[in-house]
Amino acid sequence: MEKELSKSKIQFQGTINSKNLLHPSEITRHLSRIQQLKATTIIFNVASKPTKKKLLHNKQWNSGMVWNEDSTSNNLNRRLQNSKNNYASMNRYAVNFTGKRNLKKLSSKELLCELKQRVQVASIEFGDESFTAPDWQKYIPNKNLTQALGPFNTCAVVASAGSILRSRLGDEIDAHDAVLRFNGAPTIGFESDVGRRTTIRLVNSQVLFRPEFKFHDNTLYRTGTLLVWDPSPYSANLTEWIKHPDYNFFEYYKKYRQNNPDQLFYIINPKMEWQLWDIVQENTAENIQRNPPSSGMMGILLMMTICNQTDVYEFIPSRRKTDLCHYYERFQDQACTMGAYHPLMFEKNLVKRINQGSDEEIYMQGKVTLPGFRTFQCP
């Protein structure tokens, strides 16, 4: 989500940077605007799937709302509708989508098989195109991503959403075999809600590139395995990408590896993000933002690859839903939940459709349960 809002600030004045990098007067102006937009439509609807009807009789929560997997941009406020449409038409990454929309709504199993068979979760390896110079051999880990990580039985993906505050989910999260966190999300001071353990941290390239993140100095990044991603143009090969990355993070990656040679640190192959984007678009009736998926969505796919079961916390918001962007900041913007730069709302629709848990778990805990790809067979 940091990526989403940072990009939006640069390209659209209506969307705000989630890292509070604007001048204080700009922040005040934007927050005033947000207060004027409070009467916005929220896209929660009571679930009505036959398999979950029995849960609706639970008086403790049947008046609550859960994410509607058929949500459309009509449910967004005008500011976010405009932002979504602008990004769909801007086409910064030269997206040339040639896939076909699924006129028939795919089942959960069919969607899972699409993700399993078509999204290649892979890291850059020495010897890949443009990664053949001897110095790259010193920095890229010898084992590839899926060889080095897992297999794990149970995994937790912890979204950085403000709605995880006061959840008391920390012990449950830490009970998993592996825990994934994003960007600069801390644990110290928030242990009761987000847990203490970090097995994997997925960061976007601007975290390495921009000095305000203090990537090389902050000990937060020293724990667990690191992964970094950066968007390439839609049809670009690795040579084109390494010459024109979104953020020129490669030298910062090398510097970090040189200073921390014993910590595993991988670069995600950018083909993954667009393979995933294609599936989201194919299963959405309208045109989505022609920008890469969020860190959250890519982290979910990573854990489904290396874990037998993945519990995702507050990617789909719970009863604690709030416009607070991150649990560790005091910044509010509905774009953090609904999406502006990333096609976040449509990603949540897809995740809701493949959820193996109950609507009650979403409402009460913000928890979605997903199967590992190795646990099921596809035709």
Results as ranks from 00 to 15, higher is better:
Lys38Asn: 13
Arg33Thr: 14
Gly14Ile: 10
Ser32Leu: 13
Asn237Trp: 10
Asn96Thr: 11
Gly299Phe: 00
Thr223Gly: 00
Lys59Pro: 09
Asn144Glu: 08
Arg92Asp: 09
Arg319Asp: 01
Phe209Asp: 07
Lys255Tyr: 08
Gly64Gln: 13
Asn283Leu: 09
Asn102Thr: 08
Asp278Ser: 13
Pro50Tyr: 11
His342Arg: 03
Phe44Thr: 06
Lys271Ser: 15
Ser25Lys: 09
Phe215Asp: 03
Gly162Met: 09
Arg222Phe: 07
Pro245His: 04
Val95His: 06
Asn237Ala: 08
Pro261Cys: 05
Asp171Ile: 07
Phe373Gln: 07
Ile288Cys: 09
Met304Gly: 13
Phe190Arg: 03
Asp323Tyr: 03
Leu220Asn: 03
Ser205Gly: 15
His326Asp: 09
Asn102Arg: 12
Met65Val: 13
Thr199Pro: 01
Ser8Thr: 11
Asn349His: 01
Tyr327Gln: 07
Phe331Gln: 06
Tyr87Val: 08
Glu172Phe: 02
Phe97Asn: 05
Ser358Asp: 08
Leu145Trp: 06
Arg29Ala: 15
Ser108Glu: 09
Lys9Gln: 12
Gly195Gln: 03
Pro261Met: 08
Leu112Asn: 13
Val66Met: 02
Gly184Met: 10
Asp230Ala: 10
Arg78Pro: 01
Asn142Ala: 10
Pro141Asp: 02
Asn308Met: 03
Ala47Leu: 10
Gln137Leu: 10
Asp193Gly: 06
Asn75Asp: 14
Pro231Arg: 06
Lys143Ser: 12
Arg78Asp: 09
Asn260Arg: 10
Gln81Val: 05
Asn287Lys: 14
Trp229Ile: 07
Asn269Val: 06
Glu114Val: 07
Phe97Asp: 13
Leu149Trp: 05
Arg79His: 02
Phe152Arg: 04
Met338Asn: 15
Ile267Gly: 03
Leu302Lys: 01
Asp311Cys: 04
Asn237Phe: 05
Asp262Lys: 12
Cys307Lys: 02
Ser192Thr: 14
Gln120Ser: 14
Met303Arg: 12
Gly372Trp: 08
Pro245Glu: 02
Leu370Phe: 00
Asn283Trp: 08
Ala159Met: 03
Glu360Val: 14
Trp241His: 15
Cys155Lys: 04
Asn144Met: 03
Thr28Cys: 04
Pro261Asn: 05
Thr225Met: 06
Gln309Asp: 02
Asp230Thr: 08
Pro343Ala: 09
Ile288Asp: 11
Glu286Pro: 00
Ser232Leu: 04
Asn102Asp: 10
Gly357His: 13
Ile316Gln: 04
Trp136Thr: 01
Leu344Gly: 00
Ala161Gly: 12
Asn260Asp: 08
Phe209Lys: 12
Phe373His: 10
Arg353Ile: 00
Gly162Tyr: 10
Gln35Gly: 01
Gln275Thr: 09
Thr219Tyr: 08
Gly224Arg: 04
Gln117Cys: 10
Leu145Asp: 11
Thr51Ser: 14
Phe213Ile: 07
Leu220Cys: 01
Glu251Ser: 15
Asp323Ile: 02
Glu110Tyr: 05
Lys84Asp: 04
Ser48Met: 12
Asn204Ser: 13
Pro343His: 06
Lys3Arg: 11
Arg319Lys: 13
Thr223Pro: 00
Pro292Asp: 01
Phe215Thr: 02
Ala156Thr: 11
Phe12Ser: 07
Glu26Phe: 09
Thr375Ile: 07
Thr41Lys: 14
Gln35Asn: 11
Thr187Val: 14
Met90Leu: 14
Asp278Thr: 04
Gly299Ile: 03
